[in-house]
């Protein structure tokens, strides 16, 4: 079990945490931007227009069936050339995570909206509420409760998927770990074990609380 001293070297943990911050930042911005996209996508999916439905179907199915890494490659290498964008690796990651998160969240929004029983709409109607009041005060709050647990789970998936950013060369926590390992290759040959072990638990301690929150919400709101 020797080699653990690498973790005590000055600068190792601060550097890992600064890498982790990049990870969290990419995940956070992606989650936040996914929310409006998801609401829009979810609303579009409940629309009765054949063309809109078909387009949304293809979008959702394509995003869902492609591996996220493949989507990252398509955005990073493909879009950059096609639209002559100067899309850096971080930008490509955020773009892909928002398109993916938006599609998944949109499906949750659609499912939640469709799960509100018809009698709720009818009760609101006979009380004289107009369609916007019905949506805003009756339907949306209930739909929100129903989709929140799954949405928190989606956020943990986005955090985990952020790890792929390393493969496009973004200097996030894994890449920082690799740099530390490379720099200490001769002094601490055991570094890979400890550094990757630490990164493993860093991800765990971000994602696990989110999972617990999701499960708690699910239990608490299940009976409504």
């Amino acid at each position: 079990m020797h080699g653990v001293e690498i973790l005590l070297q000055p600068g190792v943990f601060p550097r890992l945490f600064s890498g982790l911050w990049v990870t969290v930042w990419i995940a956070g911005i992606s989650v936040i931007l996914s929310i409006p996209v998801g609401l829009l996508v979810g609303w579009l999916m409940t629309i009765r227009n054949g063309l809109v439905r078909a387009v949304m179907r293809v979008y959702l199915d394509f995003i869902r069936i492609m591996p996220q890494l493949a989507l990252l490659f398509i955005a990073f290498y493909g879009f950059a050339r096609a639209f002559d964008w100067n899309l850096d690796a971080t930008g490509a990651c955020v773009l892909v995570f928002v398109l993916w998160g938006g599609a998944e969240l949109g499906d949750l929004v659609r499912g939640a909206l469709e799960s509100i029983p018809r009698s709720q709409y009818e009760s609101a109607y006979v009380l004289g509420l107009d369609s916007w009041q019905t949506f805003r005060r009756i339907i949306l709050p209930q739909a929100f409760r129903r989709m929140l647990p799954a949405s928190v789970n989606l956020a943990t998936r986005i955090v985990k998927t952020t790890s792929l950013a390393a493969l496009l060369g973004v200097i996030e926590v894994i890449k920082v770990g690799q740099q530390i390992i490379d720099a200490n290759r001769f002094l601490y040959p055991q570094a890979t074990l400890w550094i990757y072990g630490v990164i493993f638990f860093m991800y765990f301690f971000i994602c696990w609380p989110l999972s617990l929150v999701a499960r708690h919400l699910e239990k608490r709101w299940a009976h409504d």
Binding site: Q120, S123, G128, L129, Q142
Partner: peptide, 23 residues
């Protein structure tokens, strides 16, 4: 339905299902 909201308030209705707003 397309009735005005005012008209709807003049006819009250109670349904069979418990249709209170749960939120």
């Amino acid at each position: 339905g397309t009735r005005s909201t005012d008209l709807r308030t003049r006819i009250g209705m109670v349904f069979q299902s418990y249709d209170l707003f749960p939120n």
